[in-house]
């Protein structure tokens, strides 16, 4: 049944990897269901707030090369995160602010300028079924999102509508410049000592903070393989699989660390030497193969303060429609 209030968006080109994501699928990790969700939660939340959505609304995550989308109704959108050179009917579109897309417009993307993942929020959110409490796509298990897979030509997305009055209030809303993230090709990530430091030789943790690692081409939404100096295990201690978290740096026997990201498995069989703090994960999510990272030590208290400060600043600039973070 067609709802007149809803916007139809026709996918003309799918882009390199365009998926429906929200803030993740919680409550099923004990059954082996990965969290998934937007890699860069900050950009996804900002995009939603700019168009008057709750933080949990489903958005599109665009990777490196964006899609071509045809809008079948006037609607309000916002694009945040990476600059993938968006244009509407050939005119450049500003990032980090809400804009009106008139009926019949075509949104396209061009060259990747900064970052690697852009987020497209549409007023009312993308209407795909909730699967296990979330609209996020997990491609590996074909769960959630748009038919459990990335978008391809011919797909039609339905979006919740919003009144014209609301649209008038939204247009031009933007994130203040002082809160705009800066995406660099080489970034420092703050780390907390991990649960299995004792699996590594004594100087490993200190050594990790003195070197640079490169994001290898074998990197995806599950994790980034980092190449650089070996992290040395203490012999070949058997490790029994346990719980993982986004941001954990696990180290297989070859000594090349893997930074676990949004689609990581719920449990893993490699020891975790450090964990990147939550406040820095949105920047980590914007890395592309060839970019590099360094690691800076941090405490849990500092990490939580950093996250709360980010959130307080964001809430002051763009108040949430629904205040919960990550939880639904």
């Amino acid at each position: 049944m067609m709802d007149r209030q809803r916007c139809r968006i026709i996918v003309v080109k799918g882009g390199w990897l365009t998926t429906v994501q929200d803030l993740g699928r919680y409550g099923y990790q004990q059954y082996g269901v990965p969290i998934t969700g937007a890699m860069d939660r900050f950009s996804a939340i900002v995009a939603n707030r700019l168009v008057g959505n709750s933080d949990q609304a489903a958005v599109l995550e665009l990777t490196l090369k964006g899609p071509v989308l045809q809008f079948e109704r006037d609607t309000v959108i916002a694009i945040t995160g990476a600059d993938l050179s968006p244009t509407i009917n050939g005119s450049t579109v500003p990032l980090w602010q809400s804009i009106l897309v008139p009926y019949g417009s075509r949104l396209s993307f061009g060259k990747q300028r900064t970052g690697s993942r852009a987020y497209l929020a549409i007023a009312g959110g993308i209407d795909v079924p909730l699967v296990l409490g979330s609209r996020s796509t997990h491609c590996a298990s074909e769960t959630g999102g748009f038919q459990g897979r990335p978008l391809k030509p011919g797909d039609i997305l339905l979006c919740g509508g919003n009144s014209g009055e609301l649209a008038d209030r939204l247009i031009g809303k933007r994130l203040p410049d002082r809160l705009l993230p800066r995406y660099e090709r080489s970034i420092p990530l703050r780390i907390i000592p991990g649960p299995q430091q004792d699996f590594f030789v004594k100087q490993s943790l200190a050594a990790l903070t003195e070197v640079t690692y490169t994001v290898s081409p074998q990197s995806d939404r599950m994790g980034y393989r980092l190449s650089g100096p070996k992290v040395v295990h203490k012999g070949s201690m058997q490790f029994i699989s346990d719980g993982t978290v986004m941001g954990a740096l696990q180290v297989p026997q070859d000594g090349q660390p893997i930074l676990l990201m949004a689609d990581r498995q719920t449990t893993g069989g490699y020891p975790k030497i450090v964990v990147v703090i939550s406040a820095d994960l949105p920047l980590a999510a914007q890395l592309a193969p060839g970019d590099s990272v360094t690691f800076t030590p941090c405490t849990i208290a500092e990490a939580q303060r950093a996250l709360r400060m980010h959130r307080t600043q964001l809430d002051a600039a763009l108040p949430p429609i629904n205040s919960s973070f990550l939880c639904r």
Binding site: Y26, Q29, G243, T266, L307, S324
Partner: peptide, 19 residues
């Protein structure tokens, strides 16, 4: 604010909202 409790062979991981 506790959103996942994950039992494994010999451990439990508790995931919480850091805010």
């Amino acid at each position: 604010g506790i959103f996942d409790i994950v039992p494994t062979y010999r451990s439990i991981t508790v995931h919480f909202d850091p805010l």
